[in-house]
């Protein structure tokens, strides 16, 4: 009986170790990608690329970085983050609606 429990707990430990390892790999990859994005952003500005191209690209890179930050470094992709996720996206939707209103139907 006790041997069996020990086996079960050892198995659980192994599973957790694997998960941690995978998590670490993902974190390192995202971290590398974020550095790469930052380098691209800086070099684009230094190289004086046309602003029609640079503005949307910078915003896109920034958006991806925010997503990386939230989902990988702050663990929003993991289990148990459903409520915070849904409330954050709810808040963003409402903030976006406000911004759209203020930039479109309020005249200046």
């Amino acid at each position: 009986m006790s041997e069996r429990t020990e086996n079960v707990s050892r198995h659980k430990l192994n599973v957790r170790k694997d998960e941690n390892k995978e998590e670490m790999v993902q974190q390192v990859i995202t971290f590398a990608l974020m550095i790469l994005f930052t380098l691209i952003a800086f070099s684009m500005v230094i190289l004086d690329i046309s602003s029609y191209f640079i503005k949307p690209t910078l915003l896109l890179l920034a958006g991806v970085q925010v997503a990386f930050q939230l989902f990988y470094f702050m663990h929003m992709k993991n289990k148990g983050h459903f409520m915070p996720t849904i409330i954050m996206f709810g808040g963003m939707t409402i903030a976006l609606a406000t911004i759209i209103t203020f930039t479109t139907i309020i005249w200046w």
């Binding site: 409402i94 406000t98 209103t101 203020f102 309020i106 005249w107 200046w108």
Partner: peptide
């Protein structure tokens, strides 16, 4: 300024 801002903020 713009007075309509108040109306929007108030009703949001």
């Amino acid at each position: 300024g713009n007075a309509i801002i108040w109306e929007h903020l108030f009703w949001i």
